[in-house]
Design a protein around this nucleic acid. Structure first.
Lengths: 216, 216
DNA sequence: CAGGGTTTTCGTCTTATAATCGAAAACGTG
DNA sequence: CACGTTTTCGATTATAAGACGAAAACCCTG
């Protein structure tokens, strides 16, 4: 079991990796993970691994990605990995162990085994779900301005999105709501932005993406 | 490893099940499956299991569904299952073993373990993908009329869809093309329908379902 | 404290795609 | 050959997203 844990920081999508101290693939960077224990589901187990091994407890979303089973993905012995996508909000800052660090997915260091492929799969899953779910709640802080949310979406998707459209699309879907609060404007002045929040912290799929609807 | 194999027949979505002869859950119906062999991926393995155990070789689509890992899903011992969605076209008619049969997903018999949950997950996956992919190719025969395709989609989705919209939506996406042939009209007369086919037999995702597009 | 620059916000317009409707085409049957 | 039937296709309507610009609300400078 492995987890591709992603977050947004410094306008970039980052992944959590630890550097291997022992063979095989010494010094290369690995995804955190571990073995399934008795009496737990794989979802509970991967959360436990992340809490115990890299002290990450802020996961706002965890979902299964895929089973990776290429025969020689780990040279020498047969290892089948159940991979997960994990997300933590950009305001969370877990204290990481020495050998662990965040790396931008755009500029990954040398990774062990097929962990780069797993991370790219995780990124694609995240990007797809940003389109048709409210999964942004898992990346954003509890409250945020539209400009901050635009930066989060832009970094995750890899291209600039329009703050206007983002606001309107998410509001229309009922995913976003205004808190009524505003924050003071920045050093350059400008109208003070309003604070928003996601209406739900559970994954919800937009029904508008279902085409071929039942007749009314 | 287990497979929820689905097809359309008699205007209904059917699942392939075999009746258990031995405990636990004797006489209840199970999904086909088996153990991963050395040197094969889980996808190759599940295709091999289906070919060897229930003689099904007509799979037009196979994809991972989910890992099912509830601790007591198999009473007594720990069994983690990687579940798959498999599809076969409605014109295929594999010869099944004695203890194996098709059952409408709407009226499932008593199933073993969590296999009903797995089948419902498979059905939801299929229904979702009918909306935003060309996955209909895996259920339909090589060539078909629009009315036949409407019946296939209606049975899979669980509600009547409009033949007009189905034709236009799939054509607009470039998923459907006319063969130029027509078939003679039925006993009640009527204009002889044209034959269509899917342009691709590989899964393709509609780009139109991606919202928050990059700026032009 | 007035004016200019800045950022946010919101309404309007345009575009894209799907749903609905109805007429015309093309066949069998009596 | 008129009639019912089914398919096909164009026209219209509905819905949602993208683009654009004006107005709002702030800061800073002179």
């Amino acid at each position: 079991m492995l987890a591709g844990v992603l977050r947004i920081r410094d306008q970039a999508l980052q992944a959590l990796l630890w550097q291997r101290a022992r063979p095989p693939h010494t010094h290369r960077w690995s995804l955190p993970g571990g073995r399934l224990g008795p009496g737990e589901t794989v979802e509970r187990s991967i959360r436990r691994q992340l809490a115990e091994k890299v002290d990450v407890r802020e996961l706002t979303h965890v979902e299964q990605l895929s089973v990776f089973s290429a025969p020689e993905r780990v040279p020498g012995k047969r290892v089948v990995a159940t991979a997960f996508l994990g997300l933590i909000p950009c305001d969370a800052d877990p204290t990481l162990p020495e050998d662990t660090a965040w790396h931008p997915v755009e500029t990954l260091p040398a990774t062990a085994f097929d962990h780069e492929e797993i991370l790219l799969t995780a990124r694609e899953r995240l990007r797809a779900k940003l389109s048709y779910t409210n999964i942004g709640f898992a990346l954003a802080p509890p409250r945020f301005t539209v400009a901050e949310l635009r930066d989060i979406y832009s970094a995750a998707l890899g291209y600039r999105v329009s703050a206007t459209n983002l606001q309107r699309v998410l509001s229309r879907r009922g995913a976003l709501e205004a808190t009524g609060e505003t924050v003071s404007s920045g050093p350059a002045g400008g109208r003070p932005p309003a604070l928003f929040r996601f209406t739900s912290r559970d994954l919800q799929i937009t029904d508008a993406f279902a085409v071929l609807r039942p007749p009314t």
